[in-house]
Design a protein around this nucleic acid. Structure first.
Lengths: 237, 237
DNA sequence: CGCTTAATTGAACATACTCAAAATTTGTGG
DNA sequence: CCACAAATTTTGAGTATGTTCAATTAAGCG
């Protein structure tokens, strides 16, 4: 698989800044980060970094969708988070100077910038506001992780699958039709989000289909009845 | 239940500093934090703050053991974390300026200092090193939360209970005999750590007892065979 | 067009939950 | 310190929810 050559756009010209943690830093600071920046292209399915590997930088997603997952003792995968344009990945390994705690995989073709740890630490040192923003990002991730924990511990398969679909909708949005999830996952991947076997995931999706909650068109999931989907996720059913 | 009157020791004289995030700040900075510090006593079982309540400060545990838990939709409790001397609780609510995401309950009589948000934000602004340390604390909490997520999603009841006992050992240590957990939880609370019903928790503890892994003396859990306990937790059995 | 991967279906099964009842412990007031 | 009430622990039996494993069909890719 050959690496595609693409422009290494400096941070100051990056269109993701609006949603990113870098939206409030000065252009001078952006230039400083850009100085040692690398830009890589990852094809769908390619791994951006592996759990357990030594951290070789902090990544910022310029374009594309990414899943962050961990392997359990038995080799079963668990998706812990998703990330998309403007978001940082690999920051925990950077902050603790440890190896990566999870594996990041491209869910579709991605452009990902690789930032130098040193430059980011410089920024953390010099710009307290940036530190504070990063604290908020982490704080939010922790909150979501704990919510996810309680969901997996206490909710039924139906609820968890319904909720996973809603999470995908929130995170990656819908296609032009305003109904179809814009991200495509395999049944196994969707199961790995909710902590459910592939077979049970398939059966549950099929149930939702029959019940008119979703429409299945190959790998695409169309939300046919959002209200019902929300009800199913919330145990209000 | 009347509030016990105790000394409000300034941070500069606090013995927990060795393990706390405040260990590296200057005595001047400690004095600044101490200025508006409150100190409270909580009896075993008392709630330090409730999930959903508006954040009224950041807490630092001077003495005692605390559980942090959340309620699921059905009202079932899930313990998400523990904290003890020197640790901060309620920092997420502070950072995001949201209400508390979880409930903190004293597992034994506790002395807890209440710190002013303003003073902590001042410190975050002025001392980049302190920000960085807080980032590391959050980063570590996130890592643990994700590990817990994968454990609950993929491990059996036996493994999870065994692991929970090991976590209690790491976090709160053992009594003088070097075998007995120094923290006392009800069977329900232990189940709430691992995401398991009270009945199943009791049955599993009883199995461990019969198998010589632990000794049960009332509420006290004595680790009879640590190696076997670790094996049971790791699925190496 | 052949081959690999993913999706689907079925049936048997196991794990852990639910509900109910009894035994024990703990806390509290007198 | 005792007695009663409340909370916790324990045990049992039945059951549901999801898993496992195996086999088949469909889809994607070179």
């Amino acid at each position: 698989m050959k690496k595609q050559v693409i422009d290494n756009v400096p941070c100051s010209e990056c269109t993701t800044n609006g949603n990113s943690i870098f939206c409030n830093i000065s252009s001078g600071e952006k230039d400083a980060i850009s100085e040692r920046k690398g830009m890589n292209f990852f094809k769908k399915g390619q791994v951006i970094f592996y759990e357990g590997n030594h951290s070789h930088g902090l990544f910022c997603i310029k374009e594309g969708k990414v899943k962050i997952s961990k392997l359990g003792d038995e080799g079963k995968e668990q998706v812990v988070r998703f990330a998309t344009s403007g978001e940082l990945i690999g920051y925990r390994a950077m902050l603790s100077n440890e190896s990566y705690n999870a594996t990041a995989t491209a869910l579709e073709d991605c452009h990902v910038c690789q930032l130098s740890k040193g430059k980011i630490f410089d920024l953390l040192q010099s710009n307290q506001n940036f530190s504070l923003q990063l604290l908020k990002v982490l704080s939010d991730d922790l909150k979501k992780s704990e919510q996810k924990l309680i969901n997996i511990a206490q909710k039924s398969v139906r609820e968890r699958i319904a909720e996973s679909i809603l999470i995908l909708k929130e995170k990656f949005g819908l296609k032009e039709d305003g109904k179809t999830l814009s991200v495509v996952l395999t049944r196994k991947e969707l199961g790995d989000v909710a902590g459910i076997t592939t077979e049970t995931t398939i059966r549950t999706l099929s149930d939702f289909n029959k019940e008119g909650i979703i429409d299945l068109e190959g790998k695409y999931i169309r939300i046919a009845n959002l209200k019902k989907l929300i009800q199913t996720a919330n145990l209000l059913d």
